[in-house]
Design a protein around this nucleic acid. Sequence first.
DNA 1: TGTTAGCACTCGTTTTACCCGAGTGCTAAA
DNA 2: TTTAGCACTCGGGTAAAACGAGTGCTAACA
Lengths: 344, 344
Amino acid sequence: MLTDRQLLILQSIIEDYIQSAEPVGSRSISKKNSITFSPATIRNDMADLEELGFLEKTHSSSGRIPSQKAYRLYVDRLLLPYRFSEPEMNNIQSLFAGKILEAEEAVKETAGILSELTSYASIVLGPEMFESRLRQIQIVPIGKAAAVAVIVTDTGYVENHTVALPPSLEAGELEQITNILNERLRGIPLYQLQRALFSEVRDLLKKYVLNYEAALSFTEEALRKSRHEKIFYGGKTNLLNQPEFKDVDRVRALLELMEEEHLIHELLKPTMNGMTIRIGQENTNEAFEHCSIISATYSLAGKPVGTIGIVGPTRMEYQKVITLINHLSYGLSNVLDDLYRRDS
Amino acid sequence: MLTDRQLLILQSIIEDYIQSAEPVGSRSISKKNSITFSPATIRNDMADLEELGFLEKTHSSSGRIPSQKAYRLYVDRLLLPYRFSEPEMNNIQSLFAGKILEAEEAVKETAGILSELTSYASIVLGPEMFESRLRQIQIVPIGKAAAVAVIVTDTGYVENHTVALPPSLEAGELEQITNILNERLRGIPLYQLQRALFSEVRDLLKKYVLNYEAALSFTEEALRKSRHEKIFYGGKTNLLNQPEFKDVDRVRALLELMEEEHLIHELLKPTMNGMTIRIGQENTNEAFEHCSIISATYSLAGKPVGTIGIVGPTRMEYQKVITLINHLSYGLSNVLDDLYRRDS
DNA sequence: TGTTAGCACTCGTTTTACCCGAGTGCTAAA
DNA sequence: TTTAGCACTCGGGTAAAACGAGTGCTAACA
C-alpha cells in the first residue's frame, strides 16, 4: 500500500534520524543524492506516512521522527546488508582466532566485542551447561561440618558449592560416596543428575552407608542445580552517551532493570534458534520502552545454550547490529562446538 | 582556634547540608533548637569560618556549603555515635545469623546490606585467599588437548582454570602428577605454591614423568595465581538518586571508573587493618572528586584479606556509614574466622 | 565587648516578552 | 502529479524585569 517513493522517503528519514537523533525535515531529505523530489512533494508523502502511523511529530511544526511501526517495517523490509570496515572485521576475526580454552572466556570476550563495535550495551547469557555431562565429581571435606562438592563436566565447566556435612557421616563413607557417584553418574547430563541419583545411586548408598537418609540428602544437595545462569554485560556505560539517555531517570530505570538478573534472563533466555528483534514497546518491560533489543541464540551441537544481545535506543543502527550479532552468534557457536568436540 | 559556638554552627551547617544538599543560610540555622543566636551573630561566625576555609559560597549572596576541610574536621572531631533503628539493626543481625557456608556468599550479602542501608554504592573486595592452604588439587582431562585444574583450599575456596595439555603427556602420567601434587603440596599456602612446585615437586616429576619439561610447565600453569581479586558492587544505581549526580557526565565518569577493576582494587586493596576515610579530592582519582569513600578491611585470623567500602557524595551521612562499616567489617571478619576455624 | 536589629545590596532564579528560523500545510500554477 | 509560494506554528534563544534568599555592614543595645 506504500508507493516506492514513500518507502524510499521513509527509509531516508529513518536512516537520517538514526544518525542525527533529531527530527528530520523535508528539505534535508530532498538534498540527499538518492532523492530527486522537491521538499513539497516529500512533505505530501510525509503527511501520508504520518497518517499511516509510520512517522510522528514532536510538535506541530517540527520535522518527523520514525515511529516504532516504521522501525519494524524498516527491519522487516528495508534492511540493506552491512559491510564491516577493515579494522572491525579484524577485531571480530581475532576473537575467534586465538585459542580459547574455556567457554566462559569466549562468552565474556564476545560481550566485550559486541559493545565495543556498537557503542551500545551488550548482554550475554549462559552458556547453559545442563546438556553437558558429568565428568567427575569430587567432595572435599572442609572441617567437620561442611564439604565442598566440585563437579567437572565433559565440556570443562566447573561448578562447586559448599554443603553442610551431616555429623553422622564418617570420612571413609564420604570417600565411598564419592566413588559411587563417580562410577554411577559419569556421563550423565547435568539436568538428569538428580533423577539419576535416585535411580542409580540410592540403593547402593543404602547398602554401603550407615546413615543412609542423611547421606542421600547430603548428596542431593551436593548435586543441586547451579544457581541461575550467568549474565555478562559489556559497555553498560555506552548507553549514557546516547542522547536519549541524557535523562538520569531513564538511565536509572534501565540500569536497575539490568541488575535484576532473573528478569533479564527471563527476557532473553534461549528458546528457539535464531534472532529476535524487539523494538521499543514490543519489549514488555517499561524500562525498555525507548530501547530496542536485538538478540540471537548461540548453540552447542545444534542446541541453543545461550543468548547474545544488544540493548540500544530504538534509534539503533539495525543493519550493523544485526549483522554483527549474526557473525558473533555463529562464531561463538563454532568455538563452543570446538571446545565440546575435543572430547571425542 | 575555633570557638565552641563556631564549632556548633559549623556542625549544624554540615548536618543541614548533608540532609538538604542546598546551601545553608544563617536564618535556617538560627531556627534550630540547639541554636540560640540570631542570624546576624551566625553570619559573623560564618564569615569567620569562611575565612578559615571551612565554608564556601556558591555565589556572593548565597548560603554556605561545607568545604572538604569542614568535612574532614567533622569526621575527625565532631562525629556523634550513630544509633541504628530497630529494623536496620535486625537487617544487620540477620546477615550474620544465618548459617553461611561460603565466604563469597557472605561477602556478596555484605555488599547488598551496605548499599541497602545507606542508599549509596558499596564496593567489596576479596577475600584474598592467598593465605589459605591447598587442600586438594584435581586435574581432569577434557579431551586430548586440555585439562581442567581444580584447586580446593582449606577454607573451602575453589579455583579452577583450563590448561592446554601437552600432547606428550599420557593419561597415566597425568594421574601420577596429580598424586604427587596432592602429596607434596597439601597444606601449602596458595601464594607459595609456585615456589613449592620447584622445591618440592620438580625432582619427583623428573623421576617419574617422561617429558619432564612439558609436565613442569603444564603444572606451573595449572597452579598459576588466580585472576585478580573479585570485586562486588551493591547499589550502583543508588548514586543516580543523589542530586550531585543528576549530571550524566559525572555519573558516566564514575561508572566507567568502577568498571576498571584493577584501579578500584588498587584504590581499596587491604593493607593495614582499620578504616580509611577519603573525602573529595583526597581521592587521587578525578572521577571521585565529588565523592567520599569510606572503607575498612575485614580480616581472617587477624590478617586483612579484603575491604568493604562505600562510595557516596562528599555530602555523606558520615556517622551512619562509619558505624555501619565498622559493624559489618567486624561481623564479616567473625564469619570468616568461623568458616576458617571449622577446619581445626 | 559581644550580640542583635535594620537595611542596602548582590546575584541566581523565574517570568515575561520578543524574535528567529526550521519546518509545516495548503493553494495555485506548471 | 509535481512544485513553487506563502502564511502559519512553535520550540529555542535572548534580553529585560521582578523576585527573593541570603549577605555584609552599621548602629544600637545589654
